[in-house]
Design a protein around this nucleic acid. Structure first.
Lengths: 142, 142
DNA sequence: TCATAAAATGCAATGTCATTGCATAAACTT
DNA sequence: AAGTTTATGCAATGACATTGCATTTTATGA
């Protein structure tokens, strides 16, 4: 999937600023979700802390990014599939949270449906696996 | 399942203090996970903020409680099944996070196993459904 | 039961992280 | 190009968690 930050901004009626473009570029870099602290480390020289928060919030509201919480309650962000809108976030894939490098991967694995008990109506289902990721496993072996 | 706070403390080599007992009592009250802020609201008069944090941490370390993060990154705590130890948390049931009352339920539904991509080794799998819970659904209908 | 040692508690201070208000700067419109 | 609207950056504030230390409480053994 090709990501064009400028297209995304236009489609969502957002003004085109270099900060917003940079954030999208950074998050689209690979298929892992990136945490707010990491983003801040990478973009801190170019973008103010506050602006970063605001951009991330706008993107989440618009359905451009989805937010995943890791075990420490830190927010991680990844590009949403194209079907997400501000009304509906479809985030129906399994996440993988590496306990070594703390990266969160969006796996290409759909979440198996589970039966809810009577009275409970679910609108979304999240699933996160914890363990050691590809890269960290490789690093140990070699 | 019957919960006896004093037994639990003995089994885990923890000193018997009234604060520790109160925390366990409060969390064992129903089958939903309770958040740190809620606990603080309920116990704030009896227990100092800091002590509460420390107790929760000890309980988590010992495998007495497990911690679930909600969408806002707030920690929620629930009594662990008896098989949890400080080395291994088995938390292999689906959680239900009510978007109305924000309670987190531990459902009696085991998480379906999912296949990991090559290279990824998972040691734990968490699953959380979001929606409206039993009680909130009932409240709307009547 | 009392004295002692070990540990938990409460308070104050510190640290981290997120949010708000406002002046300035940048982007879209005509 | 000028004016309006919106985003940005900075400073201040607010919410939340952690650490150090003095005091209190619990467990142990005479």
């Amino acid at each position: 999937m090709k990501i064009d930050p400028i297209d995304i901004l236009k489609q969502n009626d957002l003004k085109h600023t270099k900060q917003r473009v940079r954030v999208l570029e950074e998050i689209a870099m690979d298929n892992v979700a990136i945490s707010q602290p990491e983003l801040e480390k990478k973009l801190g020289k170019e973008i103010d802390r506050v602006t970063l928060y605001r951009i991330l919030n706008v993107y989440e509201d618009k359905g451009i990014l989805h937010r995943v919480m890791d075990l420490n309650g830190t927010a991680n962000y990844a590009i949403c599939s194209s079907s997400c809108t501000s009304e509906h976030h479809h985030d129906e894939h399994v996440h993988f949270n590496c306990t070594n490098c703390h990266k969160i991967y969006c796996l290409d694995v759909t979440i198996p449906q589970v039966k809810m008990p009577a009275g409970f109506s679910a609108v979304a289902l999240n699933s996160t696996a914890y363990g050691v990721c590809e890269k960290c496993n490789a690093r140990v072996k070699n």
